[in-house]
Design a protein around this nucleic acid. Structure first.
Lengths: 161, 161
DNA sequence: CGGGATTGTTATATACCCTTACAATTTGTC
DNA sequence: GACAAATTGTAAGGGTATATAACAATCCCG
């Protein structure tokens, strides 16, 4: 379809973990960790399809959603949510600010921290993205019934909690 | 063959994705992709605990298991299983060979490909690792009942299939 | 046989994240 | 209040794990 010229800043497009026919997967088939990884890659591909050409990655999307739902959040807290270091949260914030989707505002209560806020443009772009990502996520999950999907979410939450 | 100095550097240890109390996760709570990611990170930490100090990563472990269960497999096929490019599969194989766990044997039927085989030492080390990883995986999954665990595996397989 | 595909390999590039060290600021303790 | 300790953001430097592209050797097929 669209053959984009090689962009110098291309986010990573994970390849699917193919289940090669006739191959013995040994103990892997009994490991929750491996099954989770495979399923996660599959869902990442759905995510990627929903955000094509936008240079969005799961951490970036997560960051935008979190900032949108928690205006004034600090970079450190954002890092904690994502499981990355403060320095990484700063680079991520730099990217969002650079795209005009987020702005840093001084916080009256704490002179060290920045409060992060979506810009109007960021809000609009994120709303579209959320709809697209949710739709693709559901589409990929269509292999499951509604009840199975709910059960899966419940089990995952119980496991990760 | 490539001689690369044995890496004295440690592989990456993923940080947990903490669920910060009082924070609004917005649409993330409805996304299978996000829940899968969180659960997968949690299980990765279990994996890491089970293989501490061995410089093992999930792709490396997967590669060893696959080679063990499918002697003579080619590097390309190994890459397909892992979802990585041939060049990456080669570096991975270099690492396994460098640790004395795997050897490349010429294949009589195909002069281009190497057949990968576990060495005796590789077999022994892998057996121990498999036991440790399986135990930790089960331990982390102890939050689920046996029935729930089976159901989770089934749903994940259905989803990723 | 000859063209096209496949395998391994090397070289190069990049995304993404870490660690460490630092200044500014806040918080806790006497 | 004063001062030590902790926290926030930042800058500098580095490392891992991938990718892509090009190449030679080899296989496959008409």
């Amino acid at each position: 379809m669209t053959k984009r010229p090689p962009s110098p800043h291309r986010p990573r497009a994970l390849a699917p973990m193919a289940r090669v026919p006739g191959l013995d997967y040994g103990v892997l088939d009994e490991l929750l960790g491996y099954s989770l990884r495979r399923a996660q890659v599959a869902l990442f591909l759905a995510f990627h399809a929903a955000t094509q050409g936008k240079h969005i990655t799961p951490p970036r999307f997560t960051a935008l959603v979190i900032v949108g739902a928690n205006p004034g959040i600090s970079q450190s807290t954002l890092g904690a949510v994502l499981g990355i270091a403060r320095s990484g949260a700063m680079l991520l914030t730099d990217w969002m600010v650079g795209r005009g989707m987020v702005e840093r505002r001084r916080r009256p209560d704490d002179g060290r921290a920045w409060g992060l806020h979506l810009t109007r443009r960021g809000t609009q772009a994120l709303d579209k993205m959320k709809a697209a990502v949710l739709a693709e996520d559901r589409r990929r999950a269509a292999k499951l019934s509604a009840a199975e999907r709910r059960e899966l979410l419940r089990l995952l939450e119980k496991l990760a909690g």
